[in-house]
Amino acid sequence: MRRWTPFVLLMPFQFIFGLIYSWGTISPAIHVQSGWPQATLDLAFSLTPLGLLPAVILAGRALHRLAPKTLLAWALTCFTVGGGIGLLTASPVAFMLGYSLLALGVGAGLSTAACIALVSRLYPQRRGSLGGALLALYGMSSVISAPLFDEINRLIGWRPSLAALLAVYAAVGWLAWAFLPEAPAAPGRQTAPLPLMVLLRQRPLRWALVIVLMATPLGSASFATIGHLTKAIGVSSALGVLAVSLMALGNGVGRLGFGLLADWISPRFSRAAALGLNALAALLLLGVLHGYGVWAFVAYPLLIGLAFGGMAGKLPALAAHVAEHHGEAAFGLLFGAFAFASFLGPFLSAGLGMHSALQGLALCALAAMGLGLAVAR
């Protein structure tokens, strides 16, 4: 049991920083009670992956010099201070910079890199399955956070409710951190990390980054537009609600399942399977968008949820596979690419229109499948 204590102590960090996935519940409450424009709320959501991107890349490189537990302390500091900045004033700008960018963006980037590094060092033979499990908890944080916020919000309003939630999560996080053991040093920790451009010259890593950037935006765009899409194609409102739940379920199961596949079979197989599901979902979506059977939409939410989750769940094992001896730095780059691609999907759907963006991103997903097969190693 003692062997698994560190892994159990890492679980609260996933619920803390996965609070971003409760935005669908928090955002409407802010809009109704404070009157903030929808564009402001959309920008607040977009700032989180933009903050996560540089943080997870820099954290991956810093792990050659800093202990993962030290990075987790910095992550919790960002969460605590950023949450305070965001909620102590009524300014939307302070909220976006403190809560969205610093607390859930930079904090999540530091936390994710540190947690995956701890798993890789303490459980090297299970880095795929346990890393995927942590990322699954991160993606499914809203299962607890969203209804908890909603219940408190009914009683005291959105700002005190979110402040109470942040305070409880911060307290739990610092308590878990206090009991977390130090991890053993990473292999080769005494040597300086490769310069970024030298690391990017490694062909397998370079292609892995390109594939993540091509394949991921379809899933994030689908998460952002699924409600509008169900109305546009004329399916029932009940199916629209079910679609959201199926995507969330698929996201969590995909993160865990494809991490397990990477350990049980190989990271290469896990990537091919995730890309295959993504391509199948893309074909179904193209058929629906062109009117070739709305019935095909029934399977789409679960498939795209599984594929989107799988794109994240396979990354811990894939990073070690494509950049041997530099897995932590490679994971920072790959997860940073995943975060940026997650931002691109909603951004393109807002800029190009839902139909055009989804159609283009579906074609990119098919191209990513072909590229993945071409560069498989």
Rank of each mutant, 00 (worst) to 15 (best):
V294R: 11
W4M: 12
G360E: 01
N153D: 14
A176I: 10
L104Q: 12
Y300L: 15
A248H: 10
A192P: 09
Y99N: 03
A29Q: 07
W36N: 05
H228Q: 14
S129P: 12
L205S: 05
L137C: 12
Y292L: 12
R2C: 06
L76N: 03
A296H: 11
V241P: 01
P28K: 05
L50E: 08
I85H: 08
A282C: 07
Q359G: 15
M1P: 15
A62P: 06
P160M: 10
R203H: 12
L134Q: 07
S120A: 13
S266V: 03
F269G: 01
E328G: 11
A90P: 03
G109E: 06
R268E: 13
F179L: 14
L71D: 00
P193V: 11
I144N: 02
S356L: 15
M369P: 00
I85F: 11
S245Q: 06
Q38D: 14
P147R: 03
H64V: 06
A133N: 06
A133G: 12
Q359W: 11
A75V: 00
A75G: 03
G351N: 05
L348M: 14
L102D: 05
A368H: 00
G83C: 04
L76R: 02
A185C: 04
Y300I: 09
G360D: 01
L348C: 06
T77H: 08
R154G: 15
F17W: 13
Y123N: 06
A39S: 15
C115D: 08
V81S: 01
L348Y: 11
A319C: 08
S270M: 05
A307V: 00
S270W: 07
L101Y: 15
S129I: 11
Y169W: 14
M96K: 00
A113D: 01
L242S: 15
L199T: 04
L72R: 03
F79M: 07
H326V: 09
W207D: 05
F95N: 01
A341R: 00
V375H: 03
R65P: 13
S161F: 11
L280P: 00
A299W: 04
R203W: 13
L63D: 12
V106L: 13
G107E: 04
Q202C: 01
L175T: 15
G60I: 06
P37G: 10
A178C: 13
L361N: 09
R3F: 15
V8T: 15
H325E: 15
W74H: 03
D42F: 10
L155I: 14
V253F: 07
L213C: 09
A341W: 01
H31S: 14
L58H: 09
A238I: 13
G372K: 00
G345P: 00
P184M: 08
P346Y: 02
A307G: 05
G293I: 13
W4A: 14
S120V: 05
L19N: 12
L200D: 11
A350C: 07
V244K: 01
G157K: 05
A232V: 13
L261C: 10
L358V: 08
M311L: 14
L366H: 04
M354V: 10
S142V: 07
N278M: 08
G360R: 02
I211D: 00
